[in-house]
């Protein structure tokens, strides 16, 4: 697989605090990558290092195969970004703001109307940035970061402060941007259901370390949240479940069993052998949120264990 962005062993410390700790991640080209983590996990610090706003203590960042620490221009030409909130000269119009960016990037001024059209802000050229709503500012920020036709777009919490309609628009817009224009998009967020709906890949970061990186499909297919069991004799089935030691929740017409996916068939066999009629077995996959919470808590437990040892 070709990677648009490769990070190896990236570390950044502030006095005694390690904001990013030996982080390695790979963002596949042309895909949407969700960069997840709790507040203070190190997402923004990582993005700031990718954008060279802050300097890493150690590690390497490669953009489309080239290390940017040795070639700042390569990184700047190929990445567009919004770090935290988009910045504008509030007294200037949308067009004037984009004109400044176009001049900095030595890009043709014709691109201004093109990017405004991409972000659905055509007709707002002469409107001052201070008169824009939050959602419009986010879109203008994306237009600003697309002006030099970058191949990678990095957005730090792009839905922050947006209303539900704005969030949906942003989601649709980013999907279009990735599919239609082939841009690799890296989105950092702690709003998991948002990322779940648009990301192809996710990386989970906690306490400055990457604790999991995988494609979203494998999360959906690979991990079971619980099993819904419909049987003719619930009491007898519960006795067997107790024997396995699985957590369960008996409902009116079914039992929710919290067991690993690979145990479904063993459980089924045992129930059948005990003369229980199994009417249906349905597996419910883990949501991204459940997966996130489980890997984060596992990571915390591992760290505590290591610390105590």
């Amino acid at each position: 697989m070709k990677y648009a962005l490769e990070i190896k062993n990236l570390t950044k410390s502030y006095k005694n605090f390690k904001a990013v700790d030996n982080l390695s991640l790979n963002v596949p080209e042309g895909k949407i990558y969700g960069f997840l983590g709790r507040n203070g996990a190190g997402k923004t610090t990582t993005i700031r290092m990718i954008m060279e706003l802050i300097k890493p203590d150690s590690g390497e960042i490669k953009v489309l195969g080239q290390a940017i620490q040795q070639n700042h221009l390569w990184g700047a030409k190929n990445i567009g970004s919004i770090v935290e909130t988009p910045g504008f000269y509030e007294n200037l119009t949308a067009s004037e703001n984009l004109d400044i960016t176009a001049t900095m990037f030595k890009t043709n001024r014709n691109r201004i109307s093109e990017v405004l059209e991409i972000v659905n802000l055509s007709g707002c050229e002469t409107k001052k940035a201070r008169d824009f709503s939050l959602g419009m500012k986010q879109r203008l920020g994306i237009a600003n970061s697309l002006i030099h036709s970058p191949r990678i777009l990095i957005l730090d919490e792009p839905t922050n402060g947006l209303d539900p309609e704005g969030i949906r628009d942003m989601r649709d817009f980013l999907r279009t941007l990735s599919k239609k224009h082939g841009i690799t998009i890296m989105i950092s967020s702690h709003i998991l259901n948002e990322v779940e709906q648009i990301a192809d890949y996710v990386g989970i970061i906690d306490q400055g370390r990457l604790i999991e990186e995988m494609d979203i499909q494998s999360i959906i297919e690979g991990n079971q949240s619980y099993l819904i069991l419909k049987v003719d004799d619930c009491q007898k089935a519960i006795t067997i479940l107790k024997g396995f030691g699985y957590k369960y929740l008996a409902e009116q017409d079914c039992i929710k069993v919290h067991c690993p996916k690979n145990c479904n068939s063993i459980l089924n066999k045992k129930l059948v052998e005990s003369n229980i009629c199994v009417n249906s077995l349905s597996s419910v996959s883990q949501s991204l949120e459940e997966r996130f919470l489980s890997v984060v808590s596992e990571n915390n437990a591992d760290r505590k264990e290591a610390y105590n040892a």
Partner: peptide, 8 residues
């Protein structure tokens, strides 16, 4: 940050 992200 916009200025610093430019190729200058």
């Amino acid at each position: 940050k916009n200025i610093l992200s430019s190729p200058n």
